[in-house]
């Protein structure tokens, strides 16, 4: 235990109703001790349920743990208690940016800056979100030049209609463009994790055995999702003119290529 955490813990032990819980929770959070930080924050909020800083602290802890929606709820509570809370506006700016709602992100970051014009991290965040908004407005395909392994080289749609992702929804290889335009690989990958979990659960609870693939015919295109290994999902996207039978053949070929690449990665 570092000195400042020890000193803050001792102070809080002496006076459990002290506001020092905010500093202690933050010290634990920045050290990555999220469970301990959450306990401190929740205990502190019991004594000070209407303290905006306490809700801001808990929001940052759950955001660090990956639950951005829950964090947004807490930041909203903080703003209800203090409409000019810079940290809560900054947090909601972050949450909206994560959701892809750049307008809302800009609005909150501007309010955060108005509340605390000296916060350089808000200035930088505002700059980054403005740039992203300008880029999105001027070139929907911008930001698509992410370097990813050319696993599917030689296959049709290797970098625009074949996407390999891990079970947590992170892109492993391939690429995906919406109608050949903007890169949507990251966003679709995030959704695929949920699809695969729901497929697992549905197959299990409905006693259908193990799921092998899911095929969907959309208004404007067809999708085929399979799991070439326990640690990867493969999405194949094609124009709606490609019949579903051919889609399955293409997916089987791509899955074989993906399997070989994945085996190589684990050696």
């Amino acid at each position: 235990m570092t000195d400042d955490v020890r000193a803050l813990s001792a102070e809080l032990a002496r006076d459990p109703g002290s506001l020092v819980f905010v500093a202690l929770g933050e010290a634990l959070r920045v050290r990555g001790r999220l469970d301990a930080a959450a306990k401190v924050a929740l205990a502190g909020l019991e004594h000070h349920p209407n303290l905006a800083d306490g809700h801001d602290l808990y929001a940052r802890i759950v955001a660090d743990a990956g639950d951005v929606e829950r964090a947004a709820d807490e930041w909203s509570i903080a703003l209800a208690l203090d409409p000019h809370h810079a940290g809560a506006h900054k947090g909601l700016g972050f949450a909206n940016f994560q959701r892809g709602d750049l307008d809302a992100a800009l609005e909150h970051l501007e309010l955060a800056l108005a509340a605390d014009p000296t916060d350089q991290s808000t200035v930088q965040a505002l700059h980054a979100v403005r740039q992203a908004a300008q880029q999105a407005a001027s070139d929907p395909g911008a930001g698509a030049s992410v370097e990813r392994p050319a696993v599917f080289a030689g296959l049709e749609g290797a970098d625009s209609g074949l996407l390999l992702v891990d079970p947590q929804g992170r892109v492993l290889a391939g690429g995906l463009r919406a109608q050949g335009g903007p890169d949507v690989a990251e966003e679709v990958a995030a959704y695929l994790a949920g699809v695969s979990q729901e497929a697992d659960r549905s197959a299990r609870l409905l006693e259908l055995g193990e799921w092998r693939w899911i095929m969907a015919e959309g208004d404007a295109g067809h999708l085929h999702l399979s799991a070439p290994s326990a640690s990867a999902l493969l999405l194949l996207v094609r124009d709606k003119s490609v019949p579903s039978g051919r889609l399955a053949i293409l997916a089987a070929r791509a899955a074989e290529v993906a399997r070989r690449w994945l085996e190589g990665q684990t050696l």
């Binding site: 995906l176 949507v184 679709v188 959704y191 006693e207 092998r212 404007a220 295109g221 999708l223 999405l235």
Partner: peptide, 27 residues
């Protein structure tokens, strides 16, 4: 499952799924 797949399909610009087929080993 349909709701989750719809989000992926719409984001990939494939539109609203008109037919979804989940194939499993026993059904």
């Amino acid at each position: 499952l349909a709701k989750r797949f719809r989000r992926a399909s719409e984001t990939a610009a494939c539109g609203l799924p008109q037919f979804i087929h989940l194939q499993a080993s026993q059904g």
